[in-house]
Design a protein around this nucleic acid. Structure first.
Length: 212
DNA sequence: AAATCGGGGGA
DNA sequence: TCCCCAGATTT
């Protein structure tokens, strides 16, 4: 019985290197913490494919909290409306106000400070820490929950799942690991018809014996 | 704890 | 048509 680093993390990172969605615009090196925060808010309950079309014009027009606050709320909402959940325009506006008032316009590096931002919950706060500040932790969204619960044969609502995901995050590769879990769950370990036949985990997946 | 927000895409 | 999507806020 291999340990999870050998049976899960290693193959997952290898799969990601070959098959990951590396061209998504918010993953480009050099993105500011604010641009990453905006991406994570736009990605809430919204497919990466959908956000990828709208992201570049938005961060080009609103690259900083100051530019958000200076703009009209209606103009921001018009750009977000095609993605659904249009109240996220107000989330972004209020969060930008908070960043200016309490953090000198910068994105804070502390989890507790991030959580206080309007529109930022546990997942988004962790995502910013992972992708903007290189923390080796994990963020459990619907994709990661599905992947981990299947691979380790745990109930999807298990409370150990976030702790397990954190423990699996490899040193200095938290961002790659998070992207790998998201991409693999979106492309192979999908919600409806997972591609178990071609899954690189094979029988290491503890759900592989059974219909998933 | 449950309701609500939401348009877009895949099966 | 139904289900799902890098969740969080409100009730």
């Amino acid at each position: 019985m291999l340990n999870p680093q050998q049976s899960f993390v290693g193959p997952l990172l290898a799969w990601h290197e070959e098959n990951g969605r590396h061209r998504l615009p918010w993953r480009e090196p050099g993105r500011s913490a604010f641009e990453i925060l905006i991406a994570e808010i736009l990605l809430q309950r919204t497919t990466a494919a959908s956000v990828s079309g709208a992201y570049l014009p938005i961060v080009a027009r609103y690259p900083s909290p100051e530019t958000v606050v200076a703009a009209s709320p209606e103009a921001i909402e018009r750009r977000i409306a095609p993605l659904g959940l249009a109240k996220r325009a107000e989330f972004i506006r209020r969060t930008s106000q908070q960043l200016i008032a309490r953090h000198s316009g910068d994105v804070p590096r502390r989890y507790a400070d991030l959580l206080e931002l309007h529109g930022v919950g546990d997942y988004t706060a962790r995502s910013v820490l992972i992708h903007a500040f290189d923390e080796d932790i994990a963020a459990v969204d619907t994709n990661v929950r599905r992947l981990i619960s299947r691979f380790f044969d745990l109930p999807p609502d298990s409370e150990v799942l976030p702790h397990l995901a954190d423990a699996l995050a490899p040193s200095r590769r938290g961002s790659d690991f998070q992207h790998a879990m998201l991409d693999f769950a979106a492309d192979v370990c999908t919600a409806r018809t997972p591609q178990c036949e071609t899954c690189p985990f094979g029988e290491h997946c503890r759900s592989s014996e059974r219909a998933v």
